[in-house]
Amino acid sequence: MDQFTFTIDGQTITAEDGMSIMDAALANDIYIPYLCHHPDLEPVGACRLCGVEVDGRPMVMSCMTPAKEGTDVRTNSPAIYQARKVAMELLIMDHDMDCLACEAADDCDLLKVSAYLGIQPEQLEGLRPLGRQLPIDDSNPYFQFDPNKCILCGICVRTCNEIVGLGALGYINRGIETVVGTFGDKGFVDSICESCGECVVRCPVGSLAPKKPQLAAREISTICAYCGVGCGIHFGVRGDEIVSTRADRESPANRGSLCVKGRYGFNFINHPDRLTTPLIKKDGQFVESSWEEAITLVADKLSNYHGEEFAALTSAKCTNEDNYVVQKFTRAVMGTNTIDHCARL
């Protein structure tokens, strides 16, 4: 890829073809404030915070503007600061600022940009709180959507379109009434949303947030146990309990994505009903047994059947290798092709 140089705030930067000004800046540890930009998504230039001057031309959006050889980019000037300050003050006045009660308080981009711009409470005097009281959608079992905290960056909408390919989310209404919503403004649970949570992890504020999240003490990297795809996953662990999940962006299998089961379906691990040993029914009662006893019992019984008397149904939670062995066993040992796989996960 061709490389070229240009300057940001007087500093010479090397960039590659196709990079936006913001890409190049961030790659060189130069911070430009933003809220609607996300490295996984196409830029839209909606938050209007990342404006820069290019060769003296004021306010082009650095997320949307390709870096160009030899240009002189300024990330700050009185005019740019003023535009950012106004945009930020407007966002704050339209936002539910009950930060203590917010799930995103420790990782909120709105607070970060506000701190960067040095917004002080007293400078908000004279602005009118727009304080809308919209109902929270908590229909989804895993996450909730609070439109009062939404900054309409559109990251969730673009995530569902561009990464998930589902298009469950869009915009409803116009002007200040604009909200993110599902088709027909039904709750998440009644929409085509698959609850994968890709939007939730990308929400820069606490608008889309997991229900009852717990902060992990440490992370363990592993492979998701649900299916044969083998997604890379980081489990957040607290003591001996898994309390959170995070997709592995480096994993070639999932490249940072997870499905609803991988992301939210970990409660079974510590569930009291979970089977930890094989059970054998004796005198009408399930009795705990050893693996050896259980496998011997199954093998003994199977030896009485052959061909069409036998069928196998395997699980997608097994690895591909396990499933290969089961079908081999079914065909070669049991003498039948009657084998299927749940694959309905």
Binding site: V44, A46, M93, L130, R174, G175, I176
Partner: peptide, 18 residues
């Protein structure tokens, strides 16, 4: 204009309302 703002960008959506 406040009612007809498309809602996409911050200055127009919130600024006109403010």
């Amino acid at each position: 204009t406040e009612k007809e703002s498309c809602g996409k960008c911050v200055p127009c959506r919130i600024g006109t309302k403010q």
